[in-house]
Design a protein around this nucleic acid. Structure first.
Length: 223
DNA sequence: CCAAAGATGCGCT
DNA sequence: GCGCATCTTTGGG
């Protein structure tokens, strides 16, 4: 289980290091498993960070011990973040892909589909789209702001497992930030071989130039 | 009231 | 597959 040591580094280091790690969430005695494929870093002196808007009770987790869960609502959905550094800083878990293995049984997929049904109830979401957004992921894992914000991870109910091997990584600009609050840093990170489950892949976009709009990084064992 | 680290459907290439 | 309009829910000014 990842703990304070892992999260005590800067958000810009922690965010890419989370790609490929697995979130485990126990619901009704079933362990759900989601592999992280997309994250964003909200670091120190960052005008896009919620910390920049001021210290309030709901944002307090950004100042708490590294590894503290920070959740908030935006535009109808909840978002999962984790405090980093000595604060105020956090990483946002932006997308993941459901997995099954020794810990998470096939049944876990059915639970996630039930938690996060398609708007058109006559069909099911594709499994790879079940967690392809920060609010979708929270819905599929049934993570709510009042239950989890300000709390620590808990080996019995919710934790993040270290990854087996470091993946290739794409670094690019963050999404959904008002231009007057974005200083242009490329601190959105996408799993290089599982980008099809991310919110979007800058490599397949029309107007995007390699080396300018995004950077591809080889697997780094130092992360 | 209203902006906010979004999601979706629809029309288009 | 993209760009845009429209719907979303909640904490905070």
């Amino acid at each position: 289980m990842l703990g304070p040591t892992f999260f005590s580094r800067s958000a810009e280091i922690v965010a890419p290091a989370l790609l490929g790690c697995v979130i485990r969430r126990k619901l009704d005695d079933v362990w759900l498993g989601v592999l992280i494929v997309e994250t964003e870093a909200y670091g120190l002196n960052d005008p896009a960070s919620h910390a920049f808007l001021g210290r309030t009770p709901s944002r307090e987790p950004m100042w708490m011990n590294p590894g503290t869960i920070y959740m908030y609502h935006s535009r109808g959905g909840a978002s999962l973040n984790i405090s980093c550094d000595s604060g105020p800083a956090a990483v946002l878990i932006k997308a993941g892909i459901p997995i099954t293995d020794d810990i998470s049984p096939t049944k876990a997929l059915a639970v996630m589909h039930k938690n996060n049904p398609s708007p058109d109830k006559t069909i099911q979401r594709p499994t790879k789209r079940l967690c392809s957004g920060q609010a979708l992921l929270c819905r599929a894992l049934r993570l709510s702001v009042p239950e989890w914000s300000g709390k620590a991870f808990d080996r019995k109910r919710l934790y993040i497992e270290a990854r087996a091997a470091p993946p290739p990584i794409i670094a690019t600009a963050r999404l959904g930030i008002r231009s007057d609050r974005d200083d242009g840093r490329q601190t959105r990170f996408i799993h290089g071989t599982l980008a099809h489950a991310a919110t979007s892949d800058p490599r397949t976009r029309r107007a995007s130039t390699p080396g300018i709009d995004y950077v591809e990084l080889p697997p780094s064992t130092s992360l």
